[in-house]
């Protein structure tokens, strides 16, 4: 419903302070998912954790890897040099850039350590649902 609370949740989760007020006031956190809107239609887009991730194939540093166990496509910001090839490769437009002196690529990491990703938890309308296996990892539904 385009409230964008998923983006807020994502920003906080991926901030240094992990506190909704402090993170927003002290940092400039970037959301790893994006709500797209066109008229009344809206949906959140984020990494699909593809079986054959074009971002990983294109990554020049080896910073992007796919975990064979979980299927999660991870991005190691330490290794990333910010060439943005992954941004060019991702057909979903699901990789973004961090703010700061040394910007790196940032993407959905499925919130390690959390049972439910922050975006899903933040969604008040269950438009974001966590789905496993055959389906895309985080399914997007045109918000109900």
């Amino acid at each position: 419903m385009a409230c964008r609370l998923c983006e807020v949740g994502c920003k906080v989760e991926h901030s240094e302070h992990k506190h909704v007020i402090k993170s927003f006031k002290r940092e400039k956190p970037v959301a790893r998912l994006l709500v797209e809107e066109s008229g009344p239609l809206s949906f959140a887009t984020q990494c699909r954790h593809c079986d054959e991730p074009a971002c990983m194939f294109g990554c020049i540093t080896g910073a992007i890897t796919k975990d064979p166990e979980t299927g999660i496509v991870n991005l190691n910001a330490e290794k990333c040099i910010g060439c943005w090839t992954c941004i060019l490769m991702c057909p979903y437009g699901s990789i973004t850039r961090t703010n700061g002196a040394r910007p790196t690529a940032a993407k959905c990491d499925m919130c390690p350590g959390r049972e439910v990703p922050a975006c899903v938890e933040a969604c008040p309308n269950r438009a974001l649902v966590l789905m496993e296996d055959e389906e895309p990892a985080v399914a997007l539904e045109d918000a109900a």
């Binding site: 809107e37 699909r48 079986d51 991702c90 895309p136």
Partner: peptide, 22 residues
Amino acid sequence: GLIDLPEEIRHKKLRGGTCCHE
């Protein structure tokens, strides 16, 4: 954005879950 794509293509993309062009 994905939202600008024709519905059919968008759905194919979003439901597909893989992005390699091979």
